[in-house]
């Protein structure tokens, strides 16, 4: 199980929807897509890298071979995948506190959805319907979503600044340099590994430590024997 890769957490949730209500759900998603202002709440949750919703019709599960048994389902299913920074609780709670009505709009047609307020039934609902990730890969495990966005700003400002770096006196250069730093003060900052960057990194380090301890024990034995 590996829900964590670096600073990102992978959430998978699957929830049933009554087939005769799927079109309502799809219309709401379509409206959200056509009117980006409806996603303003989501944008304020700057801890999200990428998120998606996939509605699978009850007859839409892939069927690839005659010998594969055909699904016989009563409901359609909504899959939700999210990549976010921070802990499970922080994420779920930030949804509840920042965009409760938006959340209810997307999920209210799902069976037994308890609404995002109060917190405890909502937590229980997500926990019940969540599936653990087996392998999670992150292209930039050291960075948060905000780091990725601010890195673009730093790069663009630095390249623009560098165009004029050779111009003028040293005094003019330092003035422009300070202006650059002031402009980037919200974007600069060191990135460091979190305690468990990924299950792979964690396992490799655990193994390395184990080997090192075995080696030192062996050396100590040999010294004692000699």
């Amino acid at each position: 199980m590996s829900n964590i890769a670096g600073k990102a957490y992978a959430m998978n949730v699957i929830t049933p929807v009554r087939p005769y209500l799927v079109w309502v759900n799809k219309v709401i998603f379509w409206a959200a897509l056509k009117l980006p202002s409806t996603l303003k709440g989501l944008i304020t949750l700057s801890l999200i890298h990428y998120a998606r919703w996939v509605i699978i019709g009850k007859n839409q599960f892939p069927h690839l071979a005659p010998e594969q048994p055909k699904e016989d389902l009563s409901y359609c299913y909504m899959l939700f995948f999210s990549n976010f920074n921070g802990s499970w609780d922080q994420y779920v709670d930030s949804f509840t506190f920042a965009i409760p009505s938006g959340l209810d709009m997307f999920w209210k047609w799902n069976i037994r959805y308890p609404k995002s307020v109060a917190l405890t039934p909502f937590h229980k609902y997500i926990q019940y319907n969540q599936i653990e990730t087996l392998h999670y890969y992150n292209g930039y495990p050291l960075a948060t979503s905000n780091d990725v966005k601010s890195a673009s700003a730093v790069r663009d400002a630095l390249i623009a600044f560098d165009q004029t770096a050779d111009q003028g006196t040293d005094a003019e250069f330092i003035k422009r340099y300070h202006t650059l730093l002031r402009g980037l003060q919200h974007d600069l900052g060191d990135m460091y590994p979190t305690p468990i960057v990924s299950m792979a990194a964690y396992q490799v380090e655990k193994r390395t430590r184990w080997h090192a301890s075995q080696l030192s024990a062996l050396t100590a034995d040999r010294v004692q024997q000699s």
């Binding site: 839409q60 292209g139 930039y140 890195a151 673009s152 980037l184």
Partner: peptide, 30 residues
């Protein structure tokens, strides 16, 4: 399966451009 709604909260530059930008951010901060 087709996606019903896809939300991009980070950015959509090519990965090498994102990685270079992250490298620059780290180095320039230092």
């Amino acid at each position: 399966l087709p996606v019903t709604l896809f939300f991009v909260g980070a950015n959509d530059e090519p990965l090498p451009a994102q990685l270079k930008a992250l490298y620059l951010k780290q180095e320039f901060a230092r």
